[in-house]
Design a protein around this nucleic acid. Sequence first.
DNA 1: GTAGTTTATAGATAACCATCTATGAATAGG
DNA 2: CCTATTCATAGATGGTTATCTATAAACTAC
Lengths: 111, 111
Amino acid sequence: MVTRVQLDISQCAPTPGVEPMARTKANEIASLLKAVADPTRLQILALINQGENSSACTCDLTGPLGLSQPTISHHMKKLTEVGLLSAERRGTWVHYSVNKELWGQIAELFE
Amino acid sequence: MVTRVQLDISQCAPTPGVEPMARTKANEIASLLKAVADPTRLQILALINQGENSSACTCDLTGPLGLSQPTISHHMKKLTEVGLLSAERRGTWVHYSVNKELWGQIAELFE
DNA sequence: GTAGTTTATAGATAACCATCTATGAATAGG
DNA sequence: CCTATTCATAGATGGTTATCTATAAACTAC
């Protein structure tokens, strides 16, 4: 007796063998993108990239962005946590600069 | 009488003339990135790009992602609203495909 | 028409997040 | 020591969102 493979095209049948992106990897990428997907943080990153030496301190940003110092500090922390900003203390000031390598790796996700 | 510009380097003085990215533009970009900055939607986009003809319907995704149909539908709507997915109805099914141009424009934001 | 299948919507809930005010910690200069 | 400046943290609040169940809408086939 010959067994036939029944192809039921009237039912929804996802392509077999197609595995979704691993959830852990998706979570990692999403965390990175979440850090950038905020209007204020986009403005912050643009402002830092705009500066002469590509760095800025918190107090440089409160004025132009019209936000309180704790709010800016909150955003700097978010960006630092994912590695997009690196912080360096020079006396009273903390200078933040953009991690260009990670910045470029985001671009590669969409190529 | 000559007026001197007083340079007080002990105070925080943001570089004059440096204007932040326009808030409206920042909001637009953030909306687009927010749509992508979700682990489930990253998996959805990867699955669609993985398919043979780069398209998929909702019912193809519920199984592999382990989520309910309304949840998938919710995510498809989010992605469609920002233009990252386009929907085409063929009979009972709705086929979604990725807008490659917009996809590439995201990459350009990080170059 | 009825029945089955796929997609969309409505409503609820729990979790998350951007912002504020108030306060503390760290540093520099007297 | 004290004062001033910069940055970080804690707590509160209003808004957003990812998920579910239940239900409706759209389409196909009989």
